[in-house]
Amino acid sequence: MTTNISSNGGSTVRIDVNGTHYRELNGLIREAVADGAQRIDLHDVHGQRYIATNLRTEAEIHIHGTPGNDLGAFLDGSRLIVHGNAQDGCGNTMNEGEIIVHGHAGDITGLSARGGRIFVREDVGYRAAIHMKEYEEKRPALVIGGTAQDFLGEYMAGGIVVALGLTLNGENCHKASFVGTGMHGGVIYLRGHINEHQLGKDVGVSKLTRKDRTILRDLVTQFAAHFGYDAEEILASRFIKLVPLHLRPYGRLYTC
């Protein structure tokens, strides 16, 4: 097991990860950041967890291979670019920064995110964007190129989810059920079709306003730029907007 670190003497560092334990790897990343690295390339990543967690830097980290669970947990400003698939818990409780996945992402992508942006070129697993939050200008966004498994946006308290359905074929219908169960904040934009029975009981369908279109255009343009799509072509399709029916879904649950 060897870890090869090479630097061009400037601001780019390359780390050949191989079998390096995540603790050591994160140490190396922190060291590189402390030395002023602006770009770090991780090669041969094989499931190491917690890559770049709580890294206070605006450095760009390119991940080649498959990062493990909790990629960018508590992320605070870095930009992570995964050239491959991400596993579960990608962007867990992230605060600031950007995660761009050139492939799929697993379950609970963007769990409890409070800020920052996640772009996934293809699909995400179960319970993506669960309990995302927002506060004033701090508004996290998860943009999914394809579709999601069940419980997308469960318990959402804020933030923006976009699922573009680009991996759907035929009927162009999303497969997820229980979308937005317990949702009491935030918004989900879906391109493609979804049946009413697939929605959580706390979710309503509404029309996109001009403000929604501005938000969508901004996110889809960024998505298209990351992955080489034509934003206008995507935006030309019909979108559905899902919003919570109540800010207090369980307000009538109790007797004092």
């Binding site: 309990h131 939050k133 701090k138 308290a157 009491h184 800010l247 207090r248």
Partner: peptide, 21 residues
């Protein structure tokens, strides 16, 4: 309270039964 929890004021602050991870 909303600012400290980072959720909009007046909404229920829901802590789900399990931690979803």
């Amino acid at each position: 309270v909303a600012e400290t929890r980072m959720i909009p004021a007046g909404t229920d602050a829901l802590s789900p039964a399990p931690q979803h991870d």
